[in-house]
């Protein structure tokens, strides 16, 4: 049972890495907390649902389409709201409020468009029945989602560490003002990062119908709480850190479910607080404390 919990936790957690990845990138680059992250994820899920229901489109094709469309939406969205937000004295705090407003707008529109009933895509689309891994039996959907997540983490790492734009992005992460002073077009770099962040949320959403049971327009809140825990426990700005955070989250959640199930929600929250207090710089990250 212990082994089952740990192995499934690792695989399950890898999906939650994908859930946190976009949120992390946006926070790392722009110091913006995208409270609407869970709602973009929800939109990705509904997109996959409709593509499947109307055209029988496979989730993999839908994933590609969602990535492209969400990137195309996120990019201009950045110019619409973020530069203006950053004029404010306390942009980091205000971002919480701004994106809360955005999340309300998205949820309201989704409710009008989709109704409040639960939706999901039949599990057989990703294969029915379990598969064995290191002595544990796991649903096929978990394996697929974890694989997609691993690819996404790898791609983001490649982007950040192997491309010119990625190097510039990291420069902005370290110090926005210095990056600006050294002639980097921080807005362009940030806009792309913002678009990628939104696209990753959408991608995670495509697999949500398989990983999160079913979807409703109000699912974003719970998704956000999980995503916060994942990115804080890992470290901000670093996609590999998010992978670590996701797996710690997954393992501890499933261990709790196995042994102390009714307290399962408590653990991620406690972990988030403890990690912040015990590792002042985050597990792999940077300064988050003052005084």
């Amino acid at each position: 049972m212990l082994q089952q919990a740990i192995v499934s936790g690792l695989v399950f957690g890898l999906y939650f890495t994908l859930v946190g990845l976009g949120l992390n990138l946006i926070f790392g680059v722009m110091r913006i907390v995208n409270i609407a992250h869970g709602d973009f994820l929800m939109l990705g899920g509904y997109a996959a649902y409709w593509l499947f229901t109307l055209f029988g489109m496979s989730p993999f094709l839908a994933a590609v389409l969602v990535l492209v469309v969400f990137l195309a939406v996120g990019w201009p969205l950045y110019y619409l709201i973020v530069p203006r937000l950053q004029l404010a004295r306390d942009a980091e705090m205000l971002s919480l409020i701004l994106f809360f407003g955005l999340s309300q707008v998205i949820e309201a529109l989704a409710t009008i468009a989709f109704g409040t009933t639960e939706h999901s895509i039949p599990g057989r689309v990703l294969g029915i029945g379990p598969f064995g891994l290191l002595g544990a039996m796991l649903p096929k959907a978990w394996g697929v989602s974890a694989l997609v997540s691993a690819i996404a983490v790898g791609a983001v790492a490649l982007y950040l560490y192997r491309t010119r734009l990625g190097t510039l992005t990291r420069a902005v992460m370290v110090n926005r003002d210095e990056a600006l002073a050294s002639g980097i077009d921080t807005n362009r770099v940030s806009a792309i990062a913002f678009g990628i962040g939104i696209a990753l949320a959408g991608l995670a959403g495509v697999f949500a119908p398989f990983m999160l049971g079913s979807m409703t327009p109000s699912m974003g809140v719970d998704v956000n709480l999980a995503a916060f825990a994942v990115i804080v426990v890992g470290s901000l700005g670093n996609p590999l850190g998010t992978a670590l955070g996701g797996m710690i989250y997954g393992v501890s959640l499933l261990l709790m479910q196995t042994y102390l199930s009714s307290w399962a929600n408590l653990l991620p929250n406690l972990m988030l607080i403890l990690v912040l207090l015990v590792w002042p710089t985050g597990i792999l990250g940077r300064e988050v404390r003052r005084a």
């Binding site: 926070f27 110091r31 907390v33 980091e92 705090m93 971002s95 919480l96 916060f228 804080v232 988030l272 607080i273 912040l276 207090l277 002042p280 988050v288 404390r289 003052r290 005084a291």
Partner: peptide, 11 residues
Amino acid sequence: LRLSGAYFAIA
């Protein structure tokens, strides 16, 4: 209170 910015808000 040792945390700063958004970290405090989220914690």
